[in-house]
Write a protein that binds this DNA or RNA. Structure first.
Lengths: 258, 258
DNA sequence: AATGGGCGTTGCAGATGATGCAACAGGAAA
DNA sequence: TTTCCTGTTGCATCATCTGCAACGCCCATT
């Protein structure tokens, strides 16, 4: 729409591939050197490009700062809520949203079941970290040493016969969750309640939150609940995509060191 | 220089603070709605902004992708080398550059001492990880659980009487290094060689590399070598700043979870 | 169902501001 | 020194961006 801006913005991906000098930029843009110069100048004033000592241009600090600031001011809840509500609309059961924070997993949003049966959970309350589907998802995303450190530090209360018994079992479960990309809690917290959860990822592929659908046995069997899995995962993916500004969200691969 | 681009770029920091609708953007820019619309459209086409379902604008995925791509295509060596050479020019001693990668610390650049005395080190070769100043710096930056995991997995060869004896001592040393922001190796690897090192940080404050100056006792005493510390640190900071595109490099604080 | 307000969108005419040219400047290499 | 290479500036032209005003859409209100 706006030619000047269009050209200026076209410079950025070009520089992302590596430093370039004025002439290279002008050539690749198909404009006169002087034009490229003025565009680069403007970008420079905004800190979007940086001029190396050798005069070549590179992407500048501002870009990183912006990306970071944007992430910090992003609230998953804002993004997620409409989707959680919609999901709740469709399936009727309780929907949770949770994040990991300082060795705890906290519920940060909840859409109540439309059935009379309610659950023990409250926004802001820590999750039963050794059994909840959302907790498994969030912990499974931690880097290996920390994951283990946390697992070994935890208590393993036997809420029910199906609660995770100890660190070894928990770590095995986390590995499985990590592998399959979703999680369950089948009566591990309250005998009669089942739960399926899916991860919400940021643009860098790391988990920013996890969501789950919970329902008591009396309303729907574990088997039937699992049939909702595709829907839950699709919802989580939609949220991920919106959260990261419609990026093609990265596959759930390892987070390698640079 | 270019008004249109100038305005368009001014939109970004504005959106970084949170989503905004067309009118808000127009107002804050001091332009007509239609103008703002066209600017936003152009930004949108380039993926720099994203339009939420509620029509409000946010920073888009492209921004994150660009920042990331830029980082991936950045080579510390390219940036650092001239500065390392300059430092070597001033002090005469051997200057090293090293990075952490998959449980190892590797030399990736070296400027030889102009004195006849040389050191055992080669680009690409793993560093004596339990004693070298650069290794201490790089490991000190790891998140706590991983730092400990690595420390406990290591061997502690007694190169000299002053080599780090065991994991406990090493972790204590790392804590100190982390605290003070620089590191030394005083005869820990080779009896007669001392070494001072400083960290090189990226825009996010995390270490991307570490550099050091090494000199044998016969040329300069440990005490005199330490007098070079301010110079070494200043050099490292200069490299950090240039590496992150002239950002005000973040203080060496903790890397908290979001 | 009708009305009104809020907000985004479009077409248009005018003028501002971007463009390419050509000439200049400065540094490096020959 | 000369030459070449790359970045920089002044300027005249005209393409492009701008603001306006009118329109359309959706939602909330009566």
């Amino acid at each position: 729409m706006s030619q000047t801006v269009d050209r200026a913005l076209s410079i950025l991906p070009l520089l992302a591939q590596g430093p370039a000098n004025l002439e290279q930029v002008a050539d690749r843009l198909g404009v006169h050197k002087s034009t490229a110069l003025r565009l680069l100048r403007t970008l420079h004033e905004h800190g979007m490009v940086y001029r190396q000592p050798d005069q070549r241009y590179r992407l500048g600090a501002r870009l990183f700062a912006l990306a970071q600031e944007a992430v910090e001011n992003l609230d998953v809840r804002d993004i997620a809520h409409p989707h959680l509500a919609e999901l709740n609309e469709k399936v009727g059961h309780t929907v949770h949203l949770a994040v990991y924070e300082e060795n705890e997993v906290l519920y940060i949003d909840k859409v109540e079941s439309r059935y009379p049966v309610r659950m023990y959970s409250r926004i802001g309350k820590p999750v039963a970290i050794t059994v909840a589907a959302v907790a498994k998802l969030l912990l499974a995303d931690l880097p290996e040493p920390e994951r283990r450190a946390v697992a070994e530090r935890l208590d393993y209360p036997q809420y029910t016969a199906r609660s995770t018994p100890d660190a070894t079992a928990f770590l095995a479960e986390l590995a499985k969750v990590r592998e399959q990309g979703w999680a369950t809690d089948l009566g591990g917290h309250e005998e009669s309640i089942n739960c399926i959860g899916a991860p919400i990822r940021g643009a860098d592929g790391r988990l920013v939150a996890a969501m789950s659908v919970s329902a008591p046995n009396v309303v729907v069997s574990a088997e039937d609940l699992l049939k909702l899995l595709p829907l839950v995962r699709r919802t989580a993916d939609t949220i991920s995509r919106e959260y990261s500004g419609n990026a093609p969200v990265r596959p759930p691969q390892d987070h390698k060191e640079a």
